[in-house]
Design a protein around this nucleic acid. Structure first.
Lengths: 179, 179
DNA sequence: TGGCTCATGTAATCTGTTACATGATTCT
DNA sequence: AGAATCATGTAACAGATTACATGAGCCA
């Protein structure tokens, strides 16, 4: 059992999904802290099914076939076990900071452009997070989306830090440019 | 040429280093945004040397042999080229957020403990960053450590966001506990 | 003397991405 | 008709970690 397996079990615990839908969900909801490729998702579904943690039925929506997977008791048990296990150290790789660190070997303009792209991309993320946030608040089902709201809040805080840093650093580099 | 190669070229551009020293530097200075294992570093040094981007001499310090690598012109050129290339999208995997997202399948106490560990670890990171920061300021060589200070500032901002979130979320979960 | 850190390195394994194949449906 | 999206899947490759091997000097 690897991390991909648990992400899938977790998502299926909400409602039955196809591999394709799982990929889309991860890309949208988890974009700022997780990612998976088809090359991970489909083999994982195959294994989980073979091991009796999930099952599927073929659903036909508008003449289109989908393999809808749902989680079985054994799968939920595995999910619960995993949730109690110590959290793996997060893995983070930010090439931009590497380039910033060694930036005395390039010019200000290059670095400013790199950071501008970074800023734009994370402003985008913040917008998406804000949208997702207000959608959840609208539902107001009293049913605990609280945990999810906390995850969104994490994203907003961290992305704000990113964007703030980018702004300040661009200003700093521009200021140095004039001299 | 992969990312590991450029990290090494960048570090060697400051001063000659052994593979062992490179590993230590990355673990300490880059800990909050990068990591490399020996299984990446040593083969990379071998390749870079074979391709004429770096060279080495054996240094004997206190009877202990070290292969000190230094970067050659071809290596610096490669570094400069890479700095101008578009920045790779950062890759981030935070298992804690996955567990938070699915936390309705476990109890508050478990989650609080997970988050406490996270908080402690990132407070530690902040302390290290602050130390590194004041050391650099002391040097005050006027020689531009500015870029490095900016990298540290990034770390401080992001880790502060982590710790703030952790504090708030623990409070929230504890509050829910009493009810 | 035994354990720790220094120091270099590799092989096996695992993880993850990319590119491709296939085919149906929907949209323009 | 042709392009885009839906949908499932795999093989090849690339990237990265882990565990191990080896050996020397340092410290208690």
């Amino acid at each position: 059992m690897r991390q991909t397996d648990y992400v899938i079990l977790g998502l299926l615990s909400e409602k039955p999904l196809s591999g394709y839908e799982i990929k889309k969900l991860i890309d949208i909801r988890f974009r700022f802290f997780w990612s998976e490729s088809y090359g991970q998702i489909f083999p994982s579904l195959k294994r989980l099914n073979a091991d009796g943690l999930i099952e599927y039925y073929i659903e036909n929506i508008g003449g289109r076939n989908q393999k809808k997977y749902s989680v079985k008791k054994k799968g939920l048990d595995a999910l619960r076990q995993w949730l109690m296990l110590p959290v793996e150290k997060e893995s983070i790789r930010i090439e931009l900071l590497l380039k910033m660190y060694f930036s005395n070997y390039t010019d200000n303009e290059t670095m400013i452009n790199h950071i501008l792209k970074f800023e734009t991309s994370h402003k985008q993320d913040m917008m998406l997070l804000n949208m997702f946030n207000s959608e959840l608040l609208k539902l107001q089902e009293d049913e605990s989306h609280e945990a999810i709201l906390k995850v969104i809040d994490f994203g907003l805080k961290v992305n704000k830090a990113y964007v703030d840093w980018a702004r300040e650093t661009i200003k700093f580099l521009e200021g140095r440019d004039i001299k």
